[in-house]
Design a protein around this nucleic acid. Structure first.
Length: 280
RNA sequence: UGAGGAAUGCCUAC
């Protein structure tokens, strides 16, 4: 089983879910019973390609084979539904976990938090967050990033920064995802200058912005029509050893096209191709 | 051996 599980999970993580499914079939045929780990890996694979029907199928197979799904299995399926915006299913599974008396953990609550914010149910999200402390489920870096992203998406930037302060007071060291989320929040609130200021503060915190961080700000500058500044930032990121990727170019070229700057768009596209990047 | 976080958005309309 162990070897098979490693294979199934490996294929799933490469997006080759059909290959994983074949191993699943072979396991059954040669009399190796798939266990919870096999099924969870496969569920996760189907979730990652957005095939919730198959994911649910595997979950049902697991139930019918008399095995009890554990918290990892549930959260895997919940996360899939969350990504598809199926809040109803997420909530349903959440209540089922409670009913089953399964031990709830930080991952479960983080996913639930994510689902609530995605639904725009901020107040409920904040309540859940408070509830976590009471249950002694202490938020970790990922929980905080979900919370911050939720607040930022709701344009509650001030609250997001207050949460950042709380983190620091607790002695946590916010990571790059946390700061990138805040930078995105500032950008979406049309505070690109402040976003850039924060970008420049990162090295002093021991963090180097990555291609995602830069791309967010480049996109925001483009959105304000500040093409030159965007181009400037692209040059600066390269100087810092961070290469633009296909998303960066897509954002930038897309903006040039929208502004009818065909000539520039072609030039940048050529530069991109010369770097071996293509857009789909 | 299995689960959670950031960019190319999403919706709506044309």
């Amino acid at each position: 089983v162990l070897a098979c599980n490693i294979c199934v999970d490996g294929f799933c993580k490469q997006g080759k879910v059909e290959a994983a499914e074949r191993i699943f079939m072979i396991m059954k045929r040669i009399g190796v019973r798939p266990d919870i780990v096999t099924c969870t890996a496969l569920i996760n694979g189907y979730c990652s390609i957005g095939d919730m029907e198959q994911a649910r199928n595997i979950f049902d197979i697991l139930l019918n084979s008399g095995l009890k799904p554990d918290i990892v299995c549930y959260t895997s399926l919940m996360n899939g539904y969350c990504k598809q915006g199926r809040f109803d299913e997420v909530l349903h599974l959440f209540t089922r976990i409670r009913a089953q008396g399964l031990e709830r953990n930080i991952v479960l609550y983080s996913i639930m938090l994510h689902a609530l914010f995605r639904e725009g149910r901020c107040e409920e999200g904040l309540n859940l967050f408070k509830e976590m402390e009471a249950l002694k489920l202490y938020p970790d870096m990922i929980t905080y990033s979900i919370l911050l992203d939720g607040l930022c998406s709701a344009r509650r930037i001030a609250e997001a920064f207050a949460v950042l302060q709380t983190m620091e007071d607790k002695g946590m060291v916010p990571d790059l995802v946390i700061y990138t989320t805040l930078i995105k929040g500032l950008c979406e609130d049309n505070r690109v200058q402040e976003a850039e200021d924060l970008l420049h503060e990162l090295p002093s915190k021991g963090l180097e912005p990555n291609v995602i961080t830069y791309t967010i700000i480049i996109g925001a500058l483009c959105g304000e029509g500040k093409i030159d500044e965007a181009k400037d930032l692209m040059d600066r990121m390269v100087n810092k050893g961070c290469l633009p990727n296909s998303v960066t170019y897509k954002v930038f070229v897309g903006c040039l096209l929208r502004m009818n700057m065909m000539h520039e768009a072609i030039l940048v596209s050529e530069e991109m191709v010369s770097m071996g990047i293509t857009l789909d």
